[in-house]
Each structure stands twice: as structure tokens, then as C-alpha cells.
């Protein structure tokens, strides 16, 4: 096992994504009415810029809350390796913001020529695993810290797959010392799309490496389309809440839990209500931090 760059301490709070529709709610409330979240998660790329208002807003948020940097464009599965300019900018942002941690996805987004701006699936092969691990080693070294990687939703599997996604993630974490961000909705979506058991998935993971959970909504299958699509644009459904309860009960200790809404952003009160439901489930498992 490669020596990991850093340990990531357990942080058992409840948070939300920091979206522009809610900037004022988070930043302008008087101290006694501050939004009751334990952390905010931001999309790293939105702040990997030279300067301006957007960065100032992030610094204001950071002064009030712990912040997680969650990326969508590292492309950790790219056969072409990592983009040096990207890593340099992400390192600079992390040094500036001092996040709880930095995360991205187990996926690839680009080739040497083009960028899909979507989280594309990895072939689940030993070859792909080696590429991913080499890239994670390089990323963690460039950032000077261990990272979290999230399981993506996927809509196809490759004919030559040699292992399950949970086996891939487990081996990836073992070889690189990285941690896991478990998106419970993504497990549900992929399980439905590919016909595996979400519980087998959970049972097969090294749960002591999980530091964070994402909860989100998806677009159900229709008579015309038997694929569930991960949209992150609606409330968490009951099946995903049930899977979250199972996951929380299986985890060896507290983890950070977040409601992740990327589109059709509702009033903050609706997201806080969902976050309260997550708190209640965690409390029932006696895992909520004091």
C-alpha cells in the first residue's frame, strides 16, 4: 500500500451544497439566525479562478462554516493522465480555503482532445484500476493531502468488466489510501440500472474509509425509458432514504452527510427539512455527534 499523503479525520456533521440561490441566506443572516448546517460543500471548479466576486463570496462562506471542495473535472480515470494546470489551481484553492477535504468522482471526463463535462463510467478492469490508482497517487501528491472519491451513477457497463464497482472502489482505496464519498442515490440508481443489489454494494465496501455521504434525487424510469437518470434536481425518494438508513447503521462511526441539489434549486427551507430527516435517521442509529 502506498504511503498516504494525509489522514482525514472523521467529521460527523450535516451540510448542504453552497449554491448561488442561497448565498444571501447563508451570508447575510445575523449570527443568532445563522443557517443551521455544520459545513458547506462547493463545486471546486466554480472557484478555481483568478479573482473576483465569486472568490470573495467563498471566503465569506469559509469564515462562517467549514467548507468541502467537491470537484467534477479532475478526470481521475483518464488514460491521458491528469491536467497539471487543473491540479495547480485546485492546490491553490485548497491552500486558500483550507477545506475539510477535497473530493471528486470515480469517473473520467476527458480525452486528450475533448471534454464531455459529464461523469463518464470506468471500465471495471484491472487495467483501468491501475490507471485510476496511478492518477490518484499523482493527485494526492500534487495536492499534499488525501482525497475522497465518489461512486458515480452509471447508465452502462462495459462488456469486458472484470469486477464489481464496489470491488473496484475497495481495491482503489486500499492501494492509494484515498477515502470514499458514498452517494447513496448513485448506488440506488446504478443498482436499478444494472441489476445488482445495493446492499451487496454497501457490504462490499471498506466502510471505515467512508468520510461523507451524499443524498440526492433522481428521475425515475418511464415506460419509454427503463434507465433511471441521476438528476440531483428533486427531493430524495423514500427508497434512497431507506438505503441511507441501512448505510448509516452499517458504518463504524459518524460521517458527514449532505443533501446535494444541483438543479431546480428550491427554497433553502426545503433542503433544511430534508437535512433534518437525515439527522433524525442518524440519531436513530445513535451515530449523530454530540
Amino acid at each position: 500500500m502506498k504511503q498516504q499523503s494525509n489522514e482525514i479525520d472523521v467529521f460527523g456533521g450535516f451540510g448542504l451544497g453552497f449554491r448561488s440561490a442561497h448565498y444571501s441566506d447563508f451570508l447575510d443572516a445575523p449570527e443568532e439566525e445563522r443557517v443551521p448546517v455544520d459545513f458547506l460543500e462547493v463545486i471546486s471548479e466554480n472557484y478555481m479562478i483568478d479573482g473576483g466576486r465569486q472568490l470573495r463570496i467563498l471566503e465569506q462562506a469559509r469564515a462562517l462554516y467549514p467548507v468541502i471542495l467537491h470537484g467534477v473535472s479532475m478526470s481521475i480515470g483518464s488514460a491521458d493522465g491528469l491536467n497539471r494546470e487543473y491540479l495547480t489551481r485546485l492546490r491553490a484553492l485548497a491552500d486558500r480555503i483550507e477545506p475539510l477535504w477535497v473530493s471528486d468522482h470515480l469517473c473520467w471526463t476527458r480525452t486528450s482532445a475533448h471534454n464531455s463535462h459529464d461523469l463518464l463510467p470506468m471500465p471495471l478492469s484491472e487495467q483501468a484500476l491501475q490507471v485510476v490508482c496511478d492518477n490518484i497517487d499523482a493527485a494526492q501528491e500534487a495536492l499534499g493531502r488525501a482525497m475522497l472519491f465518489e461512486n458515480p451513477s452509471s447508465y452502462l457497463t462495459f462488456p469486458g468488466d472484470e469486477m464489481s464497482e464496489w470491488e473496484f472502489l475497495s481495491e482503489m482505496a486500499r492501494r492509494t489510501g484515498c477515502y470514499l464519498l458514498l452517494d447513496v442515490n448513485n448506488i440506488y440508481v446504478s443498482a436499478q440500472n444494472h441489476g445488482f443489489s445495493a446492499h451487496d454494494y454497501l457490504k462490499g465496501l471498506p466502510l471505515d474509509r467512508v468520510r461523507q455521504i451524499h443524498l440526492a434525487g433522481h428521475d425515475p424510469a418511464t415506460p419509454e425509458r427503463d434507465i433511471i437518470i441521476d438528476t440531483h434536481d428533486r427531493e430524495v425518494c423514500d427508497d434512497v432514504w431507506a438505503l441511507y438508513a441501512d448505510a448509516i447503521a452499517m458504518l463504524p462511526g459518524p460521517v458527514a452527510t449532505m443533501i446535494e441539489r444541483d438543479d431546480n434549486i428550491p427554497p433553502l427551507s426545503e433542503l433544511l427539512s430534508e437535512l433534518d430527516r437525515a439527522r433524525g435517521i442518524a440519531r436513530e442509529s445513535l451515530l449523530e455527534p454530540a
Binding site: A79, D80, T111, A113, S116, L120, P123, Q127, V131, F158
Partner: peptide, 14 residues
């Protein structure tokens, strides 16, 4: 070679 095989798969996908 490992990356090269994957690169071909990813190029075709893209």
C-alpha cells in the same frame, strides 16, 4: 500499454 488500451476505449466513447 495499460493506459493505451484504456485511451482507445475512452477515445471511442468520446
Amino acid at each position: 500499454d495499460t493506459a493505451s488500451d484504456l485511451a482507445e476505449t475512452q477515445a471511442a466513447f468520446m
